[in-house]
């Protein structure tokens, strides 16, 4: 059996999730090739040094300068060997995986969190159940970040470069930069989120100042996003927002509606701050503080500053 990892890059560097994909591929068994779609050969050395990798192929194409589903699928399909294809379960890689799967007439299994004896498990129904499937043939598999341990360094895989071209399907007309440089919730290891209990959008400044201390992203519940213009949908965590999987999720003034839990329940550690001791969020929290945010946030910021600065 052969496993082909389609890696992501960021600013020319290999995305750290690639080493987690190697661990996932190892649990499927068989050889491992990493394919890197890129505009230059700047990420291959890092990929070659991951233990357990046999081969690295960097595919260089103009279309890889910005994400476009159809051209990426065509260019990668032309180069990637046959076998299981393994990608990270990010927005773009889930989309790309689905296109390549369809191109090769293969099924896709998304959001895998564990692999045992060839059986793959993913959360479904907003994390209220897990489904375990078996593969009778090759499949495309996307792996949730932060669920498999990263493979060690120390490998020395053979590396090659292939030039490829493909027609672009969607033309970028304008790139619109984020209003601020703040980290996106889907990229963050630590997230601090506010809900309706924050009282108003102006009070999110307090969450932002704590986020700055932690290097965290600021999220919000749907109730907050819907109620207040200043809180954008890009910040929304939950059923109709983003699904996140950080090491630490701090929920402030969020009651813990089932739709919010859908987006964050798989976080490694959850801290809940709420004045209502009966709020359902406390049932899912590793650490809860029953108090108003007005009381908690200033001392939380001070404690974190003295610990981290």
């Amino acid at each position: 059996m052969s496993n082909v990892i389609i890696a992501e890059t960021k600013n020319g560097q290999l995305h750290p999730s690639t080493a987690e994909l190697v661990t996932a591929a190892n649990s499927l068994g068989g050889g491992i090739t990493i394919v890197i779609p890129a505009t230059s050969d700047s990420a291959s050395a890092t990929a070659s040094s991951i233990m357990g990798v046999d081969k690295v192929i960097t595919v260089i194409a103009d279309c890889f300068s910005s994400y476009d589903a159809s051209s990426w699928a065509a260019a990668i399909d032309a180069v990637a060997p046959a076998g299981n294809l393994i990608l990270t379960a990010s927005n773009d890689s889930k989309d790309l995986g689905a296109r390549i799967a369809a191109r090769r007439g293969m099924p896709i299994v998304q959001n895998v969190i564990s692999i045992n004896n060839g059986e793959l498990t993913s959360p479904v129904y907003s994390g209220k159940a897990l489904v375990t499937v078996s593969l009778n043939g090759n499949a495309v598999v996307t792996i949730r970040a932060n669920t498999f341990a990263a493979a060690d360094e120390g490998g020395s895989a053979v590396s090659s470069v292939v030039n490829q071209s493909a027609d672009v399907g969607c033309a970028v007309r304008e790139m619109i930069a984020k209003a601020n440089a703040r980290l996106d919730v889907s990229e963050a290891n630590i997230i601090i989120s506010g809900g309706r209990g924050m009282g108003g959008p102006e009070n999110f400044a307090q969450l932002e100042s704590i986020a700055d201390v932690l290097g965290a992203a600021v999220g919000a519940s749907r109730a907050a996003v819907d109620a207040w213009d200043g809180i954008g949908h890009g910040m929304q965590v939950g059923q109709t927002g983003k699904t996140v999987n950080p090491n630490l999720y701090i929920a402030v003034g969020i009651s813990g509606a089932i739709q919010h839990l859908a987006g964050m329940r798989s976080s490694k550690y959850i801290v809940a701050i709420n004045k209502d001791a009966e709020a359902p969020i406390f049932q899912h929290a590793d650490y809860g503080i029953v108090a108003t945010w007005e009381e908690v946030l200033p001392s939380l910021k001070a404690e974190l500053e003295s610990l981290l600065n």
Partner: peptide
């Protein structure tokens, strides 16, 4: 060629610690 073997409930987290007061 992908076949469901079973559904299972999500792993239960051990109960957390809740503190009263800031």
């Amino acid at each position: 060629t992908v076949n469901v073997i079973r559904y299972s409930p999500p792993a239960e987290k051990p109960p957390g610690k809740t503190y009263e007061g800031a």
